[in-house]
Design a protein around this nucleic acid. Structure first.
Length: 324
DNA sequence: CGTCTTTGACCTGCGC
DNA sequence: GCGCAGGTCAAAGACG
């Protein structure tokens, strides 16, 4: 692979290549660049477009300078113009306007919405790698101390930890999106280690917690499946990668998101599409010389589910329960 | 042997 | 204060 190709794959890829546009209902069928409000956009997806949230590129890589206005310009929406999507002001506890997953709106709304806001609320894009480092450092301190040996953890320090943790949680940039796939853990080029799994209330599908395996990279992601539409996988990224996509992926050979598998229509999207968006979502070896047929290719094939209406129903049901 | 997943226990935040 | 649910830890085991 040439360096040019590599660069291209890292910076100029269409982030939604390979994703059937049914997966992204906010696209106007007649204009892929125009955000289709009538499609009742999934707020989870809109978070990617909301300038108050960091871009996926920024989220994943942390090294790119992202013009958040790109998204609002490109999709003809402001960060707070949507009834569905609202910017989460710092310290805001109103969670009604925000949400990630439809299933969360169906069951225990109170708790789920609370959790949603906690999961997704990001005051602004001021979060940076430093926040991750801070979190890492605090976490590292915790890791170094055995659970039962926190003798110094008196009430005072506990309160401090609580405060700092809460503050840091708010600062942590998060990005969530929906994908239609039968595979829970969609390959994104980075290496993840699963560190937990929890059952989700009112959902038969568990939520999995992953952490980037790269040293000093505190990026996490959460993967869960919508129980209302089991074909929808909700992925939430938290933090920013402070490194590039690994050149070698165990068992994947980084040969994911092969353009040959990508949707041709998506690949030829209007140039106004924010190519930078999610750029590092795609690993550099998209032109796998070995032509490996890997799990991601299967994923991509599974992503070609043109179930636009189903997702709209999902979104509609969600938004109707979220927007007063 | 290194890496990753699994899974029960523990921690934390929040509503009542 | 209590209970619930989400989030995290870390030991154990699986796997290549």
């Amino acid at each position: 692979m040439s360096s040019n190709e590599n660069n291209n794959s890292q910076h100029n890829y269409d982030p939604f290549q390979g994703f059937n546009r049914a997966t992204f209902p906010f696209f106007d069928d007649n204009n892929p660049c125009i955000y289709n409000q009538s499609a009742a956009p999934t707020s989870a997806v809109i978070h990617a477009l909301d300038p108050s949230y960091m871009s996926f590129t920024d989220c994943l890589n942390g090294g790119s300078v992202v013009d958040y206005n790109i998204f609002s310009r490109t999709f003809d929406m402001s960060c707070s113009s949507s009834d569905v999507v609202s910017r989460m002001d710092e310290g805001t506890t109103n969670t009604k306007k925000i949400g990630i997953s439809a299933e969360n709106s169906v069951g225990d709304n109170q708790n789920q919405n609370q959790n949603i806001s906690e999961n997704l609320s990001t005051p602004n894009s001021s979060a940076s790698c430093s926040s991750n480092e801070d979190q890492d450092s605090s976490k590292a301190k915790k890791d170094k101390q055995p659970k039962g040996s926190e003798d110094q953890g008196d009430d005072k320090s506990k309160n401090v930890n609580k405060a700092t943790k809460k503050e840091k949680r708010q600062k942590e940039p998060r990005f969530a999106f929906l994908t239609k796939s039968e595979i829970d853990n969609l390959e994104d080029g980075y290496r993840w280690r699963k560190y937990g799994q929890k059952a989700v209330k009112n959902s038969p599908y568990p939520r999995s917690y992953y952490r980037c395996t790269s040293p000093k990279c505190g990026v996490k992601k959460r993967v869960e499946r919508s129980f209302q539409d089991p074909s929808v996988v909700i992925t939430t990224y938290e933090g920013k990668h402070n490194h590039h996509i690994p050149t070698t992926l165990r068992g994947q050979d980084a040969g994911v998101f092969s353009p040959s598998i990508m949707s041709s229509s998506a690949a030829t999207m209007d140039p106004c599409f924010p190519h930078e968006f999610l750029s590092h979502f795609l690993p550099s070896s998209s032109n796998d010389p070995a032509g490996n047929t890997n799990s991601m290719q299967q994923q991509q094939q599974q992503l070609q589910i043109p179930d636009y209406g189903l997702l709209q129903d999902l979104v509609s049901s969600f938004t109707s329960s979220q927007v007063p």
